[in-house]
Design a protein around this nucleic acid. Structure first.
Lengths: 113, 113
DNA sequence: TCCTTATATACCTATATGCGTATATAAGGA
DNA sequence: TCCTTATATACGCATATAGGTATATAAGGA
């Protein structure tokens, strides 16, 4: 399977779309994503790994936290994500994600301690 | 699953990409596609069904033949297929498909009888 | 009507994929 | 060093998916 079909395969899952759309607005760490999306940590981690492996996103460790952001090096990926962003009405749950993601630091665990 | 993720799911298979790219150039019937692609009839039929069900392609019966063509009503589908068309180097097998598809009627069974 | 041809689809199998539970790994701090 | 925390990953399971063989269905013709 080549890169393009792999890319579309990754886009065929709603959870990953949600992740990508949230990362399009903010760089976020795993715990923030889990909090915003109300999903389990292993689930989010596994999806992030797939996205990172194809270099759609990139990671950056800061202490014990790993922040993820969109990789802006691939024009095709960016274009396609923009296309999806224009079709957000197809993902009602993303409305809630964005609301909860307005202040992502609320879900930043260390911020609570 | 919504339409967009369904669409990407369909694009994550090489056989279906090949079909779509061939249909981008010519309206073709099943036997022509099978001949051009050197694939089995049930395989091609099943892929065509999936594409038709999501209205990415449309069918048109002419006697005992069913011709398939791209559905041009959805701008997003068209745009995406154009994007793929610009990345054909990722699908070496398509080079052969296009060669064999230059004269699709060669694989039109009735033309041989 | 029956036979032939084009195509769709049923049925089955092997493989892929999403997700949960549990645990391993990496980093920080006492 | 040991404990805690953040995150990755192993393992297992249920479901989805691609593709092959066989057959059903639709259309044409004698």
């Amino acid at each position: 399977m080549n890169e393009l079909t792999k890319f579309y395969k990754l886009l065929s899952d709603e959870t990953r779309i949600r992740i990508l759309m949230l990362l399009k607005r903010h760089k976020l760490c795993v715990c923030e994503l889990c909090g915003i999306m109300e999903e389990t940590q292993p689930k989010i981690s596994k999806h992030l790994a797939k996205l990172r492996d194809l270099e759609i996103i990139k990671d950056e460790r800061q202490e014990q936290y790993i922040f993820y952001s969109l990789n802006t090096d691939n024009p095709l990926y960016l274009l396609t994500l923009n296309i999806i962003y224009d079709k957000l009405d197809q993902f009602p749950i993303l409305k809630k994600d964005f609301e909860r993601g307005k202040f992502p630091e609320k879900f930043f665990i260390s911020a609570k301690s």
